[in-house]
């Protein structure tokens, strides 16, 4: 565990907590893509199946369980409790266009052709693009609530911090995982535009709105 990895995990944890609290406190999931949330639940479910096969640390297991539980809780809040506030007219990204190619790629490019390893690879690839329905929704409505921007910033920062963690681990431990690194790069690049808007607008106290 190095400082980049820890900062990345904290950022990831904060993102998820901010989203749940936002929905709970405002009694609304307006502006949040349920499709991205479904993809994230799929990501955590397929990646953390190793909870049953490998024990790494109490920290590792606790975080995994938290991510899985929080992702399903978010889906429950969006599709059941606060369903009336869900903005489905703007949440129209076709997730099969992500799931199908990602499944194919996971079958073709993986470390090991075993069920758990293929599911892990699938989750890494899927995570890299899972935010697209949310970014699509923001671009469609042309704006995002400030709290949603904070959520997106924390969520995007997490994988970018992991990139620094992987650079560190490569030099310190000789460890590298090309699948995670390339997917992490893709994931971080997808947020670049958003990061720019966040820094130039939200941090200066303005609402995040896109140029027409």
């Amino acid at each position: 565990m190095n400082v980049f990895r820890l900062a990345g995990d904290i950022s990831h944890l904060l993102a998820i907590i901010v989203l749940v609290i936002k929905i709970w406190k405002t009694r609304s999931c307006a502006g949040i893509s349920g499709r991205s949330q479904i993809l994230f639940a799929l990501v955590y479910t397929t990646r953390y199946l190793d909870l049953f096969t490998n024990f790494i640390s109490a920290y590792n297991s606790a975080m995994k369980i938290f991510f899985i539980v929080a992702s399903y809780a978010t889906i429950f809040l969006m599709y059941s409790k606060f369903r009336a506030t869900y903005d489905h007219n703007h949440d129209t990204f076709r997730i099969e266009f992500l799931i199908v190619p990602v499944s194919g790629l996971a079958l073709l490019v993986n470390h090991d052709f075993t069920p758990l390893e293929i599911l892990w690879t699938f989750s890494i690839y899927l995570e890299s693009v899972a935010i697209l329905p949310q970014l699509f929704m923001v671009s469609k409505t042309g704006e995002a609530e400030t709290i949603t921007s904070h959520y997106l910033f924390a969520l995007g920062s997490y994988r970018t911090l992991y990139l620094f963690n992987w650079i560190y681990r490569y030099y310190a431990e000789g460890f590298y995982d090309l699948i995670a690194i390339i997917a992490g790069l893709v994931q971080s690049v997808l947020y670049c535009d958003f990061f720019y808007l966040y820094i130039t607008k939200v941090l200066k106290g303005k609402r995040l709105s896109l140029p027409a």
Binding site: H12, N54, I56, N60, H111, L116, F175, Y176
Partner: peptide, 10 residues
């Protein structure tokens, strides 16, 4: 690649 089966990151 060095890593297979055991993934110690989240």
């Amino acid at each position: 690649d060095t890593n297979s089966e055991i993934h110690d990151e989240l």
